[in-house]
């Protein structure tokens, strides 16, 4: 009898533990969402308030945008080339080889270009921002700015989020062009299509609703990457260990957010098509 009671007690204890764990995790999740929302609201408030940090914005745009060009370019080229090589056999089977430029063009412009570039950007820039801000926090640089009478949120966070929001769309356009060039190279590996003909087919296959929504969503991708990177770095509080945690969290959550925004963008776009 006492054994049965003991087993029942253990079961009850384990179910309470599970429930507590579930509640805590859920509570932490919603707490984190509310803190990120508050951080974003703070960004918009500081964005509108003078003085404006144009110098730092330009510097960050250069560091975030220009310095990402080689990586984004190489990735874009490989993306276009591989997509073309992989798609070719299937299209050949259906006798639709001539559709290759149009199909690759639409895929790259609408979906693959923005998403892959945003993921690369999250890995390079998001983690960089997370680690940089966390180490600034650990070494008291943010405190030093604050006591010198400078608003560190405006100087560090606003400029970086604005830079990522403005630079990612430009990088995506650049990556799309390079990817299409990669596709052109891919098409010519086993065929002979002129540069002019290839790009004419690509441009003819695209319309406004392919390009515009794809470009708009990249602003949101950039904003999300900057926001998550800054949030994790700015709120880092575990010493040097926190630097690694912030960098890692910045990449993971920013990448996840890219997919969520993409899913929402597709739903919204489909309403107008």
């Amino acid at each position: 009898m006492s054994v049965i009671i003991q087993i029942k007690d253990k079961e009850t204890e384990s179910s309470i533990k599970k429930e507590t764990f579930f509640n805590t995790t859920l509570k932490n999740f919603f707490l984190e969402i509310s803190l990120i929302t508050r951080f974003a609201a703070h960004f918009f408030i500081e964005l509108l308030k003078p003085p404006y940090e144009f110098g730092e914005l330009l510097k960050q745009s250069y560091l975030i945008g220009c310095k990402s060009l080689p990586l984004v370019g190489i990735t874009g080229f490989i993306m276009g080339l591989v997509l073309t090589i992989q798609s070719r056999p299937t299209l050949v089977q259906f006798g639709a080889e001539s559709w290759l430029p149009a199909m690759v063009g639409v895929s790259i412009i609408r979906e693959i270009g923005p998403v892959i570039t945003a993921l690369i950007f999250a890995g390079k820039v998001g983690s960089g921002i997370g680690a940089e801000l966390a180490s600034m926090k650990v070494t008291e640089q943010i405190d030093a700015m604050e006591v010198s009478g400078t608003n560190p949120f405006k100087y560090i966070v606003v400029t970086r989020i604005l830079s990522t929001s403005l630079m990612l769309p430009i990088l995506v356009v650049f990556a799309d062009v390079i990817a299409l060039y990669g596709s052109y190279v891919g098409v010519n590996l086993k065929g002979d299509v002129s540069f002019h003909l290839f790009f004419s087919q690509v441009i003819e296959s695209l319309d406004f609703m392919d390009v515009f929504p794809a470009l708009i969503k990249t602003f949101f991708f950039g904003f999300a990457i900057g926001l998550i990177g800054c949030y994790n770095g700015y709120n880092s509080n575990k010493g040097t260990e926190g630097v690694g945690i912030s960098a890692n969290a910045a990449v993971v959550y920013a990448s996840l957010l890219v997919f969520i925004i993409d899913m929402m963008a597709v739903q919204v776009t489909s309403l107008f098509m």
Binding site: E132, S135, M136, T139, E140, Q141, D143, A144, M145
Partner: peptide, 9 residues
Amino acid sequence: FQSGALYDS
């Protein structure tokens, strides 16, 4: 500051 808190960049 104890560490100097110089701006590394």
